[in-house]
């Protein structure tokens, strides 16, 4: 048995925001995280976001705007996203099972803020910004500032996540998405890495983006090694050097824990592999 005091499914965004403004309702998207939370928690009033027209994918020049109610299945099967946000496409296709992807939404994934939320490291790669709405108005927050810690975000009272704005990848970027460990597994064995690489005509790295989940206190990009790699000639040596710096940063930011002797070599190997994989995809793409 679940404990729901009230279930509302308004058809207009303004109505929904007005109800949210009352401060009593919990928003529901696909329910794949929420329904379990309703089973043992105190009874709640539910506001279903399904009918608000938030399941859109909009292509606008350099950016793609994704409605918060778009499911993982819809993202994974969208050709525009496969082309312009390939790492997000891949991340969504790896979420749970088909049943979960058919219901689970990108918005729910972000707001639930599990340390192993698959779409978050992918979206960070594309400088995602979140459009948050309340009866008081609209604000935009970079995803990198939204997640404050495990299951903690800066979502304000009465606010809903409306959509996510992503900056498209440059044409012909190589990329990789590596997910280690199962969702239910203990934290130590989980890690997610997302990378994309763009090469200059002279064979040097033009730009590179790297983000990590379950490495730092919050999912985040690693700007220090991104900067370090730009303008360099790619090699295993170089990638390993960058990965070592990332591992030192992890220890500095997350502190030396009982899991560090395990996590440090894993991060070094995985990040080296992630960068190598991204680059090899790029080379394969150029040849074909």
């Amino acid at each position: 048995m679940i404990s729901v005091l009230e279930y509302l499914r308004p058809e207009k965004l303004d109505d929904a925001l007005h109800i949210m403004g009352g401060g009593e309702h919990t928003p529901a998207a696909g329910g794949t995280d929420l329904v379990l939370q309703l089973r043992d928690g105190r009874p709640r009033k539910i506001l279903d976001l399904e009918r608000l027209g938030l399941d859109f994918i909009r292509n606008a020049g350099d950016i793609i705007e994704i409605g918060s109610l778009v499911t993982h299945a819809a993202i994974a099967s969208n050709p525009l996203i496969a082309k312009s946000l390939p790492v997000l496409s891949r991340a969504s296709s790896l979420v749970g099972s088909l049943q979960i992807r058919n219901r689970g939404t990108v918005g729910g994934n972000i707001v639930n803020a599990s340390p192993c939320a698959d779409t978050v490291p992918a979206l960070l790669l594309y400088d995602a910004e979140l459009v948050l709405k309340s009866s008081g108005g609209t604000r935009t927050v970079p995803l990198s500032q939204f997640v404050l810690g495990p299951y903690r975000t800066s979502l304000g009272p009465g606010e809903i996540l409306h959509s996510i704005i992503c900056r498209k990848a440059e044409v012909s970027t190589g990329w990789s998405y590596i997910k280690l460990g199962r969702r239910q597994a203990v934290n130590i064995s989980r890690m997610t890495l997302a990378t994309s690489i763009f090469m200059n005509g002279d064979g040097k790295i033009g730009s590179v983006r790297i983000s990590a989940g379950s490495v730092f206190p919050t999912p985040s990009r690693i700007p220090r090694i991104e900067r370090m790699l730009v303008g360099r000639t790619p090699s295993q040596e170089l990638y390993r050097q960058a990965a070592n710096i990332a591992a030192d940063m992890m220890i500095k930011e997350s502190g030396h824990r009982w899991s560090t002797p395990y996590k440090k070599p894993v991060l070094i190997n995985l990040l080296t592999r992630a960068l190598t994989e991204a680059q090899s995809k790029l080379i394969a793409g150029m040849v074909s």
Binding site: V4, V35, D48, A73, I100, N102, R103
Partner: peptide, 17 residues
């Protein structure tokens, strides 16, 4: 649900309206 497999243990009954 509309032709797509979903888990009925993760949906509220009201959601099928």
């Amino acid at each position: 649900l509309d032709g797509k497999p979903v888990c009925s243990c993760l949906m509220l009954a009201s959601q099928i309206a």
